[in-house]
């Protein structure tokens, strides 16, 4: 079909190589850094020859960090746990709330449906800071400050619109007749939703959930403002290695590596959903 000249093959190969280099090099470098001591990191000029050390990871995992000013306690693993919990719970809640709503918008053109859908989506685009500041006060009054519940609620600001918008597209792409057929066969709308709509939109829901997870995981400012230290995610936790008595570059690097690992693992596991899932109809017109 497609004729590929040698020149083109070389061009494509080179381009791909450069791209992979650009996107992967920083991660590789940080990965290498995480196995070095501050001393080898700070060498000038930089070098890839070093004796690997597991000190950084050891410090993170045991929670004991040895620095110029003695041994510090760090709660990195707790931060990591918080990130996992907050992201998973937020995405789960957003799915439970968002998927039925997406279904309603896709299947039922009811009065004001487009306006409501747009309003929901527009929250995705509200500057987080705008709502965050008054929110701290309201949370105080409501007793939601410093609760996982409150945080998960605010995280909906990130997850819910994303899921609504993407999943809605999927539902719209499922033939309505298929669902009608199931209902006429004698099943309730709920059974139809569960047995027909959900499985058929499955890959899309997985892809949307994964994207929402990534965005939730990467969030920084919500937990910082709204919760106490024991509920901080890894994005805040990684800053703990910038201490008054010095910057622990090796530990920062190890923290970054550890903080990427869970999302990467999920993405690798769910990769076919992500690329193929999105291509089914999520964002198409």
């Amino acid at each position: 079909m497609e004729t590929t000249s040698t020149f083109e093959k070389i061009f494509r190969g080179t381009a791909l190589l450069l791209i992979v280099l650009f996107f992967m090099f920083p991660i590789l470098w940080i990965f290498l850094m995480s196995f070095q001591t501050n001393e080898t990191i700070l060498r000038i000029p930089p070098s890839v020859v070093f004796t690997p050390t597991f000190e950084n990871y050891q410090a993170l995992i045991t929670g004991k960090l040895t620095s110029a000013a003695g041994t510090l306690d760090i709660a990195f693993m707790r931060n990591l746990g918080n990130s996992v919990f907050l992201s998973v719970a937020s995405v789960a809640v957003a799915l439970v709330l968002g998927v039925p709503a997406a279904y309603a918008f896709a299947r039922h053109k009811f009065r004001g449906s487009e306006d409501i859908a747009f309003t929901l989506l527009s929250f995705r685009f509200a500057p987080p800071l705008l709502v965050l500041l008054p929110l701290t006060q309201y949370f105080q009054w409501l007793g939601l400050a410093d609760t996982y519940f409150g945080l998960i609620w605010v995280y909906q600001l990130i997850c819910l619109p994303l899921i609504l918008w993407i999943v809605r597209g999927y539902f719209e792409d499922i033939s309505a007749d298929v669902e009608y057929a199931y209902r006429i066969a004698g099943h309730s709308w709920f059974a139809t939703f569960r047995k027909i709509a959900l499985p058929l939109a499955g890959p899309g829901i997985a892809a949307a959930g994964l994207l929402a997870f990534i965005f939730a995981w990467n969030n920084f400012v919500f937990a910082l403002v709204l919760a106490s230290a024991d509920k901080q995610p890894v994005t805040v936790g990684a800053l703990a290695f910038v201490t008054a008595s010095g910057i622990q570059y090796g530990q920062i690097a190890a923290a970054i590596v550890l903080s990427i690992t869970p999302t990467l693992a999920i993405a690798l596991y769910a990769q076919r959903y992500l690329v193929e899932g999105l291509s089914l109809g999520a964002v198409k017109g």
Binding site: Q137, V225, L226, A229, V236, L239, V242
Partner: peptide, 20 residues
């Protein structure tokens, strides 16, 4: 609660301004 210095004062402002 111990917060990293990078974000410490923002945290203080957030906590105090909300009357926490």
């Amino acid at each position: 609660d111990v917060f990293p210095e990078d974000v410490y004062f923002d945290k203080v402002t957030a906590a105090l301004s909300s009357g926490s």
